[in-house]
Design a protein around this nucleic acid. Sequence first.
DNA 1: TCAATATCGTTTCAAGTGAAACGAAAGTCA
DNA 2: TGACTTTCGTTTCACTTGAAACGATATTGA
Lengths: 159, 159
Amino acid sequence: MKSNDFNLSHFLPYRLAVLSERVSKRLSSEYSEQFGLTTPEWRVMAHLSRSEKVSVREIHTNANLEKPRVSRAVAKLEKAGLVTKSVNEGDHRLIEVSLTPEGWKVLNQFLPNALELENSLLGTFSSEEVDQFYDMIERLHAVLDEDPKAAPRPKMDKV
Amino acid sequence: MKSNDFNLSHFLPYRLAVLSERVSKRLSSEYSEQFGLTTPEWRVMAHLSRSEKVSVREIHTNANLEKPRVSRAVAKLEKAGLVTKSVNEGDHRLIEVSLTPEGWKVLNQFLPNALELENSLLGTFSSEEVDQFYDMIERLHAVLDEDPKAAPRPKMDKV
DNA sequence: TCAATATCGTTTCAAGTGAAACGAAAGTCA
DNA sequence: TGACTTTCGTTTCACTTGAAACGATATTGA
């Protein structure tokens, strides 16, 4: 009755989940302790670092966050004085979100920590291996792209 | 004020989270549709496939699930008739969980789908690349193992 | 022996979650 | 024009989550 051919520990989806969760927790321990940010809030701020004014919708598709999570994260960040919201001139449905000076301060204070963690992780790879690793991730995504049952891939900034 | 040196899309923790979530969702769409299982429930059953009787504690450390999640998953699986719970003879604090015949039926029905998904993903790699990929994951874990701020690594079945 | 401590699994409770519904605004097209 | 549809961001609601507290059992050590 025992199906010895299956081992959860070796199962790709499980391995990815375990690694990803462990890395995420390591990172979130920092922004949560230092700034009281949650993961959606960190993602919103991180995305805002690349664009002055961004709609909720764009954050949703670019930061892999469900719409309600973005809405709530932005609301909390606004309350904390880290971002501002304003209605788009041309299209009144759109909300333009952008970092406040205080938001920039927090972000610039935290980004070095984020990059340091990333560097310490990638430090175990040669630069060729880094490319290989990312290429492999890309290829796994490509498989899912062909799978009609898979969710669409979140938008990815080029460059 | 704009810090153009940071790109969320390229950030390792984010990339891992995105890939892992996408793979997880693809898998869970199957066991949720077909059997009404949640992720903790699937993990519990998958872990049970390798051992006759297992304590809640062991599932907790082996399937990367918090204690309450295991407790709740097991309770729900018991209610559904897929597992049984019994008190350990020697140590009355321990609960022994094991699959029922019905549980085995469900598991054996689902495992081929799980393996098929894994194969379709890994099919994009040569067998050397599969080894490389897993080795790289292992090396990232090794970095975290040395980091006092990182959570301990969940137990991993050898072989 | 028997208090003090540790471990196990469950439960509590406050917070987070997402699918679906919602109102508001914009776009479509006859 | 004006009904219909689509899109945007928010909110509702039922469910999930995990840290902490809990009772029960086991272990430790004076």
